[in-house]
Design a protein around this nucleic acid. Sequence first.
RNA 1: CGAGUCGGCAGGGCGGUCGCGGCGGGUGAGAACUCGUCGAGGAAAGUCCGGACUCCGAAGGGCAGGGUGGUUGCUAACGGCAACCCGGGGCGACCCGCGGGACAGUGCCACAGAAAGCAAACCGCCUGACAGCUCCGUUGGUGCCUCCGGCACCGGCGGGCGCGGCCAGGUAAGGGUGAAACGGUGGUGUAAGAGACCACCAGCACCCCGGGUGACCGGGGUGGCUAGGUAAACCCCACCCGGAGCAAGGUCAAGAGGGAGUCCUCCGGGACUCCUGCGCAGGCGAUCGAGGGCUGCCCGCCCGAGCCUGCGGGUAGGCCGCUAGAGCCUGCCGGCGACGGCAGGCCCAGAUGGAUGACCGCCCCCCGGCCGCGAGGCCGGGGACAGGAUCCGGCUUACAUGCCGGCUCGUCCG
RNA 2: UCCGCCGUGGUGUAAAGGCAGCACCUCAGAUUUUGGUUCUGAUGGUCCAGGUUCGAUCCCUGGCGGCGGAG
Length: 108
Amino acid sequence: MHAITAEEVAGFGVPKVDPVMTDAGAVPRVGFVVSKAVGNSVVRHRVARRLRHVVRDRLGTVRPGCTLVVRALPSAASAASAELGGDIDSALRRLRLSRDHSETGGAQ
RNA sequence: CGAGUCGGCAGGGCGGUCGCGGCGGGUGAGAACUCGUCGAGGAAAGUCCGGACUCCGAAGGGCAGGGUGGUUGCUAACGGCAACCCGGGGCGACCCGCGGGACAGUGCCACAGAAAGCAAACCGCCUGACAGCUCCGUUGGUGCCUCCGGCACCGGCGGGCGCGGCCAGGUAAGGGUGAAACGGUGGUGUAAGAGACCACCAGCACCCCGGGUGACCGGGGUGGCUAGGUAAACCCCACCCGGAGCAAGGUCAAGAGGGAGUCCUCCGGGACUCCUGCGCAGGCGAUCGAGGGCUGCCCGCCCGAGCCUGCGGGUAGGCCGCUAGAGCCUGCCGGCGACGGCAGGCCCAGAUGGAUGACCGCCCCCCGGCCGCGAGGCCGGGGACAGGAUCCGGCUUACAUGCCGGCUCGUCCG
RNA sequence: UCCGCCGUGGUGUAAAGGCAGCACCUCAGAUUUUGGUUCUGAUGGUCCAGGUUCGAUCCCUGGCGGCGGAG
């Protein structure tokens, strides 16, 4: 099992995306972590719902069979959906690079 | 119209494109797809009270502990609500109050002040005694002079609206202080004073009459003239309180270890089914009773063969509870009101890695800027507090903006 | 769901109803060629609102925030 962590923090809402390779199915799985530091219950739910829609639109670009963990930082509370989408895009782009690197370097 | 006060309601709307959860129907072997329908709040919040419900043996007595604290009601219940009483604030509508007891006892009241709680007495005031000083009168002696007489010094006696000292007694009127000082004001009275006495006022206790279910209110009389505050200090009194909580509780399955059976085998073992429900070590104990049953202690009663500690291992699932209820709406009736009764109608979230959303357009409201004489137009920004997790009744806290109504005060007009 | 504890200068802590202290930090001055050390001095606080009391960090009520525990 490979766990690849994007260590750099993106500017706005969604700084961290951790993909975990699984051998399970072809469907990619995504989980969200929105801690209490982001805001109260209403704010946390709103952030999670926005992230759910943003990630849903990008599911086709994610390799099948892997599991993503998206963690929201406190600045995500005031971010619009477009900003969250941009952060997700940049995070996915960085992950794809590092994943290619690991593919060329090691056994799968 | 302005100011104020009390109460109630709403908490953006429409459309489009994607999307989510429950229930029901259809297609399908299934995954899933599709149609219909329902899908957060006034506080869902904080978890501060009270209940329903479930289990603990339907839960004994005493002590301890906790809670409440005007009265009468409402309610399933409450620390909630309503009306009223009392106290305080406001011109008023109205608002605020943990609002029993300080002669059951204990404690505390810093600093200041004579004294801080039970009666005393520092200063002061008054009386008397003693000695002294001073002044006046009188008298004796000595000395001086202008030798009648006067003056000075020393002494005796008597006296003073005299002075200070000391002692004894009376008194509490007055005294800077302090949050609070032993009733207030005026008078009589006295050596000085004092409820010692008198009038009025305030306040206390008791009795009587009247009103009220009651808290209490109004009136009258008697007494003693006065009793400080603090119980959100200990405490006393009255009333209430068994404990835990939906991770309550029930049920099904799985599991490690062990046993039995069947099958396969390369003879090491492995697979499946059924039963039990893990292993190791230490300690205590089986009527001489461990441990437990109501949380703290004691007593009483009861259950009782396992219990405790450490290490290691397994499980990390489903279903029920789980949403029809002190339910919501409308109307009528009773009640000042909280609320209750009757009739009719309605079904209104049940998630569980936790659904009710995302994006866009138009409208609405507010703010700012620009253009325009103006009606208005354009651009930009903003539209709260906040989301169920067993359910319900309250309390408390948060909340952009808008709407409605009752009442009070002031100004103007008629 | 239930229970408990705490909140005092920037930090760590005392005060037990009666003048809010102590140490470190910060700042200023002195000493030193400069810096450090040392000495002297100063600024700065009771989480918020209301209540009880003559008087509240302390007692009571309600909020806010933090920490911890049980199943």
